[in-house]
């Protein structure tokens, strides 16, 4: 583990909303090739943590460092979300945020925005290079749809997709930004067991084939224990445990957080 390249390094991240400390000095690392998971009871501050990392919130304290391979380290604090995405860190949302009145293909094409360059004047003139770029956007987006198994829906409106497919579309859209680290916020929320199993495979495939490291928030323990290592556990804004699935399962603090106290018999 230790010799693997460190991609994301969060040190002592703290986020205050007025008097409320939503995230309290949480540290976390994601290495190359890993599928890391962030778990914890509702309201533990997981999504806030994600929002801080992806630039939607500006954290009160702490450092978020990104170490892209072959590039200098960048500090993400206070960067705008689109800059963070440009740096290679893409995310999905807990409550699905697709562009519902755009087609499935277009949703993915939006993800290509930050990797393409046609500006206003070039779009008006629409010369050869712009047309080629457009075609490249369409082709690569379609390939991504195939990868997540949504190719047949390419021309449907995103809002007409079944729920599980919408979740996969969010992943495809995030992957279109060519990230090296993908943050998934409860990708399996609201899915049935079969859909969850498919998602399970999809995440593993992304990790292996695309060489994208993944950090996910999830409540589905089966999914988390199956695919992720390491696991970080948060409660009341604090990190209470980290380690391999086995270590987490046996950690008394985690059991307490999830099941309450008096764990002698219950656990």
């Amino acid at each position: 583990m230790a010799e693997k390249h460190k991609l994301l390094e969060v040190k002592g991240l703290t986020m205050d909303f007025g008097g409320l400390r939503a995230v309290d000095s949480v540290s976390l690392e994601v290495h190359e090739g890993e599928i890391a998971a962030l778990i914890g009871p509702n309201g533990a501050g997981k999504t806030t943590f994600f929002n801080c990392v992806t630039g939607i919130y500006n954290p009160t304290k702490g450092d978020i460092l990104l170490h892209p391979k072959g590039l200098p380290t960048r500090r993400l604090n206070g960067l705008k979300p689109n800059k963070v995405t440009e740096m290679g860190l893409a995310r999905t949302f807990q409550n699905i945020r697709l562009f519902s009145d755009m087609t499935v293909l277009e949703n993915v094409m939006i993800g290509r925005h930050c990797r393409t360059s046609a500006g206003i004047f070039r779009s008006i003139i629409r010369d050869k290079s712009v047309r080629r770029e457009e075609q490249e956007i369409v082709e690569s987006s379609y390939q991504l749809l195939k990868k997540v198994g949504l190719a047949e829906f390419a021309n449907e409106f995103a809002k007409n997709l079944p729920y599980g497919a919408q979740r996969r579309l969010e992943i495809a859209r995030a992957m279109a930004t060519e990230p090296f680290l993908l943050l998934l916020d409860e990708p399996a929320a609201g899915m049935n067991p079969q859909e969850t199993a498919e998602l399970d495979q999809l995440i593993c495939r992304i990790s292996e084939e695309e060489r994208i490291a993944i950090l996910l928030i999830e409540h589905d323990m089966k999914l988390v224990m199956n695919i992720s290592n390491p696991i970080y556990v948060m409660e009341y804004g604090k990190k209470i445990a980290e380690g391999s699935p086995q270590e987490i399962k046996d950690n008394p603090k985690v059991i307490e957080a999830y099941l309450g106290e008096e764990t002698e018999e219950d656990a």
Partner: peptide, 9 residues
């Protein structure tokens, strides 16, 4: 929000 998260300025 999704728009900026997808890298659009």
């Amino acid at each position: 929000i999704a728009c900026v998260a997808m890298g659009i300025d």
